[in-house]
Amino acid sequence: MLGELLLRFVLAAVIVIAAGTVLARSGDVIAARTKLGGAWVGSIFLALATSLPEITTDIAAVRMGAVDLAVGDLFGSSMANMLILALISLAPAGVDLFRRAALDHALYASLAIVMTLLAAMALQTRATATVAGIGVSSVILVATYIVTSSFAFRHSTVTREAGEVMEMARSGDPATLDHVSSTSLRLAILQFLAGAAVVVLVAPQFAHAAEGLAEVSGAGRTFVGTWLVGLSTSLPELVTSMAAIRLRAFDLAVGNLFGSNAMNMTLFALLDVVNGGVPVLSIAAPAHLLTALTATLLTTIALGTLVLRFKRVASVREPGSLLIVGGYVAGLALLFWHTQ
Rank of each mutant, 00 (worst) to 15 (best):
L213H: 02
T130D: 04
A119H: 03
R160L: 12
A120G: 02
A209E: 12
L97F: 09
P174G: 07
A93I: 14
A112P: 14
T176L: 06
E164T: 13
L190M: 12
S110R: 01
E215V: 10
S110E: 03
G195H: 00
A169E: 15
L117Y: 11
V216A: 15
V142Q: 01
A203M: 07
A188W: 06
A194K: 04
S184W: 04
A209I: 03
V136W: 10
V95R: 14
F151P: 05
S110D: 01
A188C: 03
G218M: 02
S217P: 12
P92N: 05
F206L: 02
L193D: 02
A91Q: 02
T183K: 10
A119E: 11
V95K: 13
L190S: 06
T130Y: 01
A196Y: 03
A207Q: 07
S138Q: 07
A122W: 00
T159A: 10
G94W: 09
T144V: 09
E211Q: 13
T128C: 01
S110N: 06
E164Y: 13
H155S: 15
V131L: 14
V202Q: 05
M121I: 11
V158D: 15
F98M: 14
A93Q: 11
A203C: 12
L177N: 06
G94I: 05
F192P: 00
S184V: 05
A152V: 10
V131M: 12
V95T: 13
G195E: 02
R160M: 14
G94L: 08
L193Q: 03
A106E: 14
R160K: 15
D104G: 11
V114M: 01
F153H: 09
Q191P: 01
V139P: 04
R154E: 08
L118A: 14
Y108F: 09
V180T: 04
T159N: 06
A207H: 05
D173N: 13
I113D: 07
T130N: 06
